[in-house]
């Protein structure tokens, strides 16, 4: 028979996975709304954000209750990591909201001819997030470590898009507002990848008790703690 404490740990994990599932879905839907110019879907994404916020509070509350029981070793690391992951997932939800807002703005104007390849960048960021959460569920440190270098590729794409959008704006001032909106979308996806990287680093800590954040060894930059302004 499982210990009561183990059951509570399992409940925390379930709450976190529910939150993770919402976070993955909202990013995918935000990109879908952007690509298909679907304002209704974009608005749904914004509504979904409050559910993620509520889950963050729920996860933190459960984690605090468990910490009060003075857990140690793996249990302690799991709870600490859960709180951090919930924070990252909440930020992922915020980024999806930002993308959906910009998507609604963008759909008011005709699409840009040479659209930057946002779906490609989104696919990498979403897959990083999904893999990081799978690694968390499976407690697979190797899988988590494999995610971290991908952050560099997303950073590179963001920079590339940024430069391309600047060129658009220089060539044609009519595109400025659309380009600025796309810059925000690109930056949001770059942040989603940062949060996925954070989750991967937390999984490594959970499995190996080794803090690899800011170690520079291909781990990539951590996500900014400032809230998005878009």
């Amino acid at each position: 028979m499982a210990l009561h404490f183990e059951q509570e740990l399992e409940a925390l994990k379930t709450a976190l996975l529910t939150m993770a599932s919402h976070a993955e879905v909202v990013v995918s839907r935000a990109i879908q709304a952007l690509v298909n110019r679907d304002d209704d879907l974009a608005r749904q994404v914004q509504e979904e954000d409050s559910a993620i916020d509520r889950l963050e509070v729920e996860v933190d509350e459960q984690a605090i209750q468990l910490l009060a029981k003075a857990p140690l070793a793996t249990d302690l690391r799991f709870i600490a990591v859960s709180m951090k992951i919930s924070h990252d997932l909440e930020r992922v939800g915020d980024e999806a909201t930002t993308i959906s807002r910009r998507s609604i703005e963008l759909s008011k104007e005709p699409p840009l001819k040479d659209y930057v390849d946002i779906p490609h960048m989104a696919a990498i960021a979403i897959s990083m997030l999904k893999d990081a959460l799978d690694a968390f569920v499976a407690r697979d440190s190797a899988k988590a470590r494999a995610i971290i270098p991908l952050d560099k590729e997303v950073d590179r794409l963001n920079k590339q898009f940024h430069n391309a959008l600047i060129s658009f704006m220089i060539k044609d001032s009519e595109t400025i507002s659309r380009c600025l909106n796309l810059m925000v979308v690109s930056k949001s996806l770059e942040r989603v990848a940062d949060h996925a990287t954070n989750v991967a680093e937390e999984v490594v800590y959970l499995c190996e008790a080794q803090d690899i954040r800011h170690s520079g060894g291909g781990a990539g930059a951590s996500a900014s703690t400032s809230r998005p302004t878009g």
Partner: peptide, 17 residues
Amino acid sequence: MFTNPSKKQTEDYVTGR
């Protein structure tokens, strides 16, 4: 010992298992 013990027996003991 209390965050990442090397031996499973220690881990099991400190986590109350």
